[in-house]
Nucleic acid binder design. Structure first.
Lengths: 327, 327
DNA sequence: ATCAAAGTTGTGAGCGCTAACAATTGCATC
DNA sequence: GATGCAATTGTTAGCGCTCACAACTTTGAT
C-alpha cells in the first residue's frame, strides 16, 4: 500500500480512502491512485484489514446433509449472493447433528471471525442450541420463523403441501395419505400441517400418515405395504426420492399409477420428470432461498435493520402421476 | 493474549509458544497457560496470526456444478478432512466456466489469502488456465493426472468403464453402445477410452457412441432413438441420471430391460437402486476423493513433498438392468 | 482583503500476533 | 564456588491496514 501511495504521490491513508470509497477524495486523486493500483497489481491484505476492522468479510454456512438436493442448492445461492456482495463463504458440514457438533462448528466459525452465519440444519432443536450459546454475530436459519436474534428464511412448505393436496382434491380424491419425512425435521411438520389443513378445509378426514426417512429405500418399503392394503387413492409424498421408491413398489406390485393411485412428490429434482411415470411434484427454489438468506444477513450487518423473516413460495408442477380418482 | 499471560504469570510470547506447540516450554508452564486459556475462554485471533505468518489456515474449493452428486460429495470429503486438520474451507462456485470466471475465482481466493486450492472443474481447459496464471499456492485438481505444479486426484474412470463393459461382455453381449457425457468433460474421455479398451481386448468393435449431456432428459431422448433402431444389445451409460432417462424411454417404447437390452450406469447415486428396474452401475467414492485432495494439499503445504497424483478405485454394483444377451 | 466553513490530505498510533534476538535460569563440569 | 552450555523465558519490532485527529487547501460570504 505504501508503494501505491508513493507511485500516486499521496499518503497511504489516501490510498486506503480510495479503497474504501470514502467520500472526501478529489476525483483526480482517486484516479491517480486507481492507476497506481492497477499498474502495481496491488491487492489489499485481508488479514491486516480484518485485524483492525474486526470484520472478516466472511460468512459461514453451517449445514447438515450438505450434499442433498436442497442444501447443496441453497449453498449455491448463498455463495453466489455472498460473492456478489464481496463476501467470502466458509462452510462447515455437520456429519452428525448434536448440540455438541453444532457448538463446535459455531466455535470453528468464531475462530475464523466470520461476520455472520447461515444455518441449514433442518431440525427444530438446532434453534434452541443457537439461542443458548448467544452467538456474537447475526444468524440466519433456513426453516426458522425468525425473531429478533435469529432471522429466518424459509420455503412456505405448508403452502406447498396444500397445493399438492388441493390438486388431488380437485381430481376427486378423498382418501389422501401422506408419507412424511422424519419426525425431527422442521419440514416434516410443516408439510403434515399443510396436508391436514387442505383436507380439513375440504371437509375430509386425513388419510393414513406414515413417517418416512426421505430415502428411496423407505418409499419402496412403504409403497409395498400401501399397494397391499389400498387404504388410499392418492398419496402425497414428502420428497421426490421417496416418491421414486413408491413408484417402483407400485410398479412391482402391479398397481397402476395414476389410474389406481395418484402420487405427488416434493422438491422437483430434475430427475423427477423422467420417473416412470413422470412425477407430479412441488417445486421449491432453493437457490433463491440461499440468496435471500444472504440478503437478510447483509441487512443486519449493514443497516442494522432487523428483518426477521422471508418466505419463498413453492409451486405445483403437474406431470403424469396424478389423475382423477377411480370411482 | 496479554490477559492470559497475566493470569498464568508469564509473557505473551510464552502463551504464543504454548499455542503453537513449541518444544521448549516446560511442562508446568504449559499447564498453567492452558488453565488460564480455558479459564478466560481465550481464542486466538486468526486475522492477527495470518497477518504475521502469511498463512490463513484456509483452503479454497473452486468448482462448477457444485450441486451435482459428484462435486457436492467431494466437497463434503474436502470439508471433513480440512476441518480435521484445522483448516477452514472457503468455496467459490462457478456459474459458468470460462477462463475469466476461473481467473476471477482464483483472484477471489488470493484476496482471501488461502493457503491452497482444490479445483473441481471437470473440463480439460481448466488446467491450462491454471497453469497460465501461475497461482502462488499449491493446487490440487480433481480429474487431473498431476505434475510438479498441479497435483491431481482422480477416480480411475477408465477402469470403472472397463469394469462395466467387461461385465456386459461376460454376459455375452457383443454390440455394446455408449452414451457418453459432453465432449468437453475430462470424465467423458476417460470413460470412452475404458469402453473402447475393454471391447478391443475382447476382440469386438465398439458399438454406437452417442454424446450426451448428463441429463435425464437427454437419456430419454436418445433412449427413444435406440429403442427404435435396436443397434445394440447393451448400453453403457456415463451416469445414472441419463440411465434413468434411458430406462423411461425403453419403458415407454416397450423395450424390456434387461431381457432385450442391458443397461449399466455410472456413479451409483442412492436412488439408482430404486429405478425401474434397479440399475447396475459403477460406484465411485467421492468423499474419499475429497479427503485425498486435502491429503495431497497438506503434503505440499507441510512437508514440501511433491506427491503428484492419487487415484481412487471404482467398483461395479450389479443390480437388475443387466442380463445375458438375447440370442 | 479577511475570515469561517467546508473539503481534502497527512501523521501517528495500534489492532493481536509471531519471529528474532536477548536475557535469564538450571544443571553438570571443572 | 566458578564456568560453560543448554533449556527456558522475556523483550522488541513489525506484519498491513484503518481510525482519530491534525494540518493544510479551497471556496464563498462579508
Amino acid at each position: 500500500m505504501e508503494d501505491v501511495a508513493r507511485v500516486a504521490g499521496v499518503s497511504h491513508q489516501t490510498v486506503s480512502r480510495v479503497l474504501n470509497n470514502h467520500p472526501n477524495v478529489s476525483a483526480k486523486t482517486r484516479e491517480r491512485v486507481e492507476e497506481a493500483i492497477t499498474e502495481l497489481g496491488y491487492r489489499r491484505n485481508t488479514a491486516a484489514r480484518s485485524l483492525v476492522t474486526r470484520r472478516s468479510q466472511t460468512i459461514g454456512v453451517l449445514g447438515s446433509e450438505m450434499a442433498q438436493y436442497g442444501p447443496s442448492h441453497t449453498l449455491l445461492g448463498v455463495q453466489q449472493a455472498a460473492r456478489d456482495a464481496g463476501y467470502f463463504v466458509s462452510v462447515a458440514a455437520l456429519r452428525e447433528v448434536t448440540p455438541e457438533t453444532i457448538k463446535d462448528a459455531v466455535a470453528h466459525f468464531m475462530d475464523q471471525g466470520v461476520d455472520g452465519i447461515v444455518v441449514t440444519v433442518p431440525h427444530p432443536g438446532t434453534f434452541d442450541v443457537l439461542r443458548d450459546i448467544t452467538v456474537p454475530v447475526p444468524l440466519v436459519a433456513v426453516g426458522s420463523v425468525g425473531d429478533e436474534h435469529l432471522s429466518g428464511a424459509t420455503v412456505d412448505q405448508r403452502q406447498g403441501a396444500k397445493l399438492a393436496v388441493e390438486h388431488l382434491l380437485s381430481l376427486g380424491h378423498q382418501r389422501i395419505g401422506h408419507l412424511s419425512g422424519p419426525a425431527d425435521w422442521i419440514d416434516t411438520a410443516a408439510r403434515i400441517d399443510g396436508w391436514k389443513e387442505a383436507l380439513n378445509e375440504a371437509g375430509f378426514e386425513p388419510g393414513t400418515l406414515i413417517e418416512g426417512d426421505w430415502s428411496a429405500e423407505c418409499g419402496y418399503r412403504e409403497g409395498l405395504k400401501i399397494a397391499a392394503d389400498r387404504s388410499v387413492t392418492a398419496l402425497f409424498v414428502a420428497n421426490d426420492q421417496m416418491a421414486l421408491g413408491i413408484l417402483r413398489a407400485f410398479n412391482e406390485s402391479g398397481v397402476q399409477v395414476p389410474a389406481e393411485i395418484s402420487v405427488v412428490g416434493f422438491d422437483d429434482q430434475p430427475e423427477s420428470a423422467y420417473f416412470i411415470p413422470p412425477l407430479t411434484t412441488v417445486a421449491q427454489d432453493f437457490e433463491e432461498l440461499g440468496q435471500r438468506c444472504i440478503g437478510l444477513l447483509l441487512d443486519r450487518l449493514e443497516d442494522g435493520d432487523t428483518v426477521s423473516a422471508v418466505t419463498v413460495t413453492p409451486r405445483l408442477v403437474i406431470r403424469a402421476t396424478t389423475a382423477p380418482a377411480p370411482i
